[in-house]
Write a protein that binds this DNA or RNA. Structure first.
Lengths: 229, 229
DNA sequence: CGGCGTTTTGAGATATCTCAATGGGAGTGG
DNA sequence: CCACTCCCATTGAGATATCTCAAAACGCCG
């Protein structure tokens, strides 16, 4: 599971011509950065790897997780397009990142990023705010996992997914990950996630379509109530 | 529980003469910042309060937590001397902070801090790294709460507390909080925490002294094994 | 010494887990 | 184009870790 994937950083296009000035913004840099395609189930990086790059998700979904020695796994976050992954202060990754679907990421040298930030308070503050938001999301998940029942956890997950990914006005969300991924995010088992989804369906709060990967949140208000905020 | 404490920011000494240069370090500023004494069980700030100040714990222990509408509470972290609390990007606190024992904090205006950071990449990076570490700690707790059994959670808590607070070579840790606080950190009940501690005592892995507030980690190796890393 | 807050201990209830079997959908190869 | 296979999701039944409710013990402070 923690096997090394030899293709991690083999992309020779990573060293690209960059704008001349040191004042290039993070977005500038990233839009010039090389794209890496990630197959479903492929790792972007693994715990223990050298932290050479920071990635921005361009397409698809990346599960960021930590494993215990005995194989139990806690997913920390599902990263969606626009999200940065691989930030940190150590020179090794402490988490692993695996695509749940085919995905694309842009790769930015982490030493470059750090050097840029050393001379650019605006960039450094942007990184700070980015991590603050990640922290807020992680805390929110911690509350969910630490205090809520199974049905509350699943409801909270669906509501959060809707807020994060649904087009304005749409009640449809796509579960672009397996039940086991949702289970490992919420601290439940696959079976409990499955049973809880069918319970929500029986309560007419959601509809499940297309082989279980699409969910319509028919009664978003009640779902939100169930999630306890 | 979320009642406003009128004494939050009543300290008129907060506006202090500061070093002339804008290059004052965070530590400089903080060592000149006003100290606020916090009684046991008093709040430093509550969810929803204006985020006017960032605090550095000088003495005592501060529980940082979030409550659900129905009163359930998840403690996010126990802040010990040296820790910063109240950082964030919003202008309201999204968490509450309450002293578990009598404590002291230094207060730094958050707008001042932010203005300093806007022109000082070094400071901004320091804030970034500080939040990164907080993020790492929160993730670690998330793994504990999401994946570990009661005995593993309590073991992990004791080991983490030891790493964070014990003098070199000492096997003693002080539980400067009630069982209910530990329970709300670990996503357990008071009773389960208590039972688990006595189970660890019966296994000769810990000794409990002084009315349950001091614990000797006699067999730190086994405790660490139990915690699963 | 009395009273209050807290911890410990016990016994029974229950939500979730575990183990096991079935079912469905997607992709592959004949 | 169909059958086969594999992976994943669902459903069921029984096991169990943890919770809930209740009572007793402890320690601290006035």
């Amino acid at each position: 599971m923690l096997a090394v994937h030899p293709d991690y950083a083999s992309n020779s296009k990573l060293a690209r011509p960059l704008p001349p000035s040191g004042a290039a913004t993070l977005d500038d840099r990233l839009s010039h950065a090389a794209v890496r395609r990630i197959a479903a189930k492929e790792h972007v990086f693994c715990e223990g790897d050298a932290r050479d790059y920071v990635f921005r998700v361009e397409d698809g979904v990346i599960a960021v997780y930590k494993t215990l020695p005995d194989g139990r796994r806690q997913i920390i976050d599902f990263a969606y397009p626009g999200d940065l992954i691989g930030l940190g202060v150590l020179d090794e990754h402490v988490l692993s990142a695996q695509a749940t679907t085919a995905a694309k990421v842009r790769c930015l040298s982490s030493t470059t990023l750090e050097r840029m930030a050393e001379g650019d308070a605006t960039l450094a503050l942007k990184l700070y705010k980015s991590v603050c938001q990640e922290l807020a999301a992680t805390r929110s998940l911690l509350v969910t996992v630490g205090q809520r029942s199974a049905i509350e956890r699943v409801a909270a997950f669906l509501v959060a997914l809707h807020r994060r990914t649904a087009a304005d006005g749409s009640l449809m969300v796509t579960l672009a990950m397996r039940r086991s991924d949702i289970a490992d995010l919420l601290g439940l088992t696959i079976e409990t996630v499955s049973r809880t989804l069918t319970k929500l369906r029986n309560m007419s709060i959601i509809e499940i379509e297309q082989g279980g990967t699409r969910v319509v949140l028919c009664d978003l208000a009640r779902l939100s109530d169930l999630s306890n905020e």
